[in-house]
Nucleic acid binder design. Structure first.
Ligand SMILES: NC(=O)c1ccc[n+]([C@@H]2O[C@H](COP(=O)([O-])OP(=O)(O)OC[C@H]3O[C@@H](n4cnc5c(N)ncnc54)[C@H](O)[C@@H]3O)[C@@H](O)[C@H]2O)c1
Ligand SMILES: NC(=O)c1ccc[n+]([C@@H]2O[C@H](COP(=O)([O-])OP(=O)(O)OC[C@H]3O[C@@H](n4cnc5c(N)ncnc54)[C@H](O)[C@@H]3O)[C@@H](O)[C@H]2O)c1
Lengths: 212, 212
DNA sequence: TTATATTTGTGAACAGTTTCACAAAAGAAA
DNA sequence: TTTCTTTTGTGAAACTGTTCACAAATATAA
């Protein structure tokens, strides 16, 4: 039962991230095995869901006992590509960009912010946590020369598509976008949007429809 | 066909947010009507999807013509609770919290950050975009007295559950959490998590499984 | 060694979501 | 008016994702 054959759903990938975190915690507690039941309870999921998700990638459990914590964690890391370093470039170091540049969790998970870009002359050349801010005019050439895998876009909405086009031209295949705009990318580029207003709108909807 | 009867899925709510934005843009362009076909194309959806989503809430289109832009936008605002002001409190004004405090998009959509809290004496009393940072010890009483609807948690993971418990005790029913931790909340509290590492992990998975 | 208890892995049933397809309604043209 | 075109609204079909239920495998206890 090697490498997965079926298409894996977004929800399964999301839960894999969740299992990965739970397993990391269990590893710290020196737990050696965990059952689908217990793993499910930690995150308000069902045991069947856990088993089904894992079964897409093989069978790493032991019946009557559960899953080996360390091994399963490694296996998920392998599946998700978390057992390696990813080179990340951040474009736009304003309010949100600065916060992201400081964020230690990224490096811990193997996401190494290697380059930072801006178009503001006062920011170019300045030092952000040991990284010198580059001129955005060098964006395309530098994402190529520095082997960037993932680009985070944190520029105003009006500039986001231009930045996006540049990095796509530089061969980037994965983008995390914070600008509240629909970026157009080719089919082979994966784009994820982090839109905080939409998150608040979900909450507003929930509050607005409580007593229905 | 008044007020919706069936349970509305998360995906439908999400798309409603998307339609709302598209309609706002169309309104600026002085478009009076839009067909499901055109609305769909803007966001890589299908016309049937658009019509189905809207049909859960009534029928506001005109056959042969499409939907009236202004009217539909108002109707969605009504459904989602975007035609009013929501009082928001932000807890933790560090890297990400400061960025959020500056973020103008929130106010534009009716999310009014009314209170900001921190536990750092150097920050309490300081002025953030016209808002004086309050002592987190007053969190529970002030979310009540100031009629806060939504709380944004932007404190370190280790403090997030304590903050969460306080605001829940203060009667808050909607929370947007930025700490990378599973908060425990009662069933009647809506919680949404914004976990940026998980977003990057989705991208890592996609890159890692490109040539499968 | 045998019996009993756990827990996995997985087809099958079920539930939820999206897409299809078309009648009905309205607009536009003749 | 009549005809033709467009587009909605919506059941039904197709698809996708979740939960069920149980045989098989292994652990644990007697
Ligand atoms: N502030 C927030 O909390 C927040 C939250 C969610 C999303 N966003 C979005 O993130 C983006 C940035 O927001 P912000 O609040 O940090 O704004 P900001 O104005 O503080 O920062 C934008 C930065 O991008 C730089 N920039 C502008 N055009 C550029 C270009 N063409 N190339 C390179 N750099 C360029 C600016 O010099 C500035 O440093 C916006 O799209 C905003 O809507 C912000
Ligand atoms: N920096 C980022 O880009 C980023 C991105 C995603 C998520 N996050 C998460 O957001 C949270 C905050 O991150 P940050 O980078 O802004 O950290 P930070 O240390 O810069 O800010 C945390 C703030 O919370 C305050 N605080 C601590 N304990 C508190 C308490 N009990 N009550 C009230 N205030 C308290 C601190 O004084 C500080 O001002 C963390 O959980 C982090 O994982 C950060």
């Amino acid at each position: 039962m090697p490498a997965q054959l079926k298409k894996i759903s977004e929800s399964t990938i999301h839960r894999l991230s969740i299992y990965y975190r739970a397993l990391a915690a269990l590893e710290k507690e020196n737990r050696t095995t965990i059952s689908s039941k217990e793993l499910a309870k930690r995150d308000k999921l069902t045991p069947a869901q856990v088993r089904k998700d894992l079964s897409f990638f093989g069978s790493f459990g032991t019946r009557g006992l559960g899953y080996p914590v360390v091994e399963l964690r490694n296996r998920i890391a392998e599946i998700m590509g978390l057992n390696r370093l990813w080179n990340v470039a951040l474009v736009g170091v304003g309010n949100i960009g600065s916060a992201l540049a400081q964020y230690k969790e990224f490096a811990k998970q193997g996401f190494n912010i290697k380059l930072i870009f801006d178009n503001d002359l006062r920011k170019i050349g300045s030092n952000h946590k040991g990284i010198i801010v580059s001129d955005v005019r060098n964006l395309k050439s530098m994402v190529v020369s520095e082997n960037i895998d993932i680009v985070i876009i944190a520029v105003p909405a009006a500039s986001a598509q231009a930045v996006c086009d540049e990095v796509v031209a530089g061969g980037i295949k994965a983008i995390l976008n914070f600008a509240p705009i629909n970026l157009k990318v080719p089919d082979d580029v994966v784009l994820r949007n982090q839109n905080m207003c939409i998150e608040l709108e979900h909450l507003a909807f929930a509050l607005n429809n409580k007593n229905r």
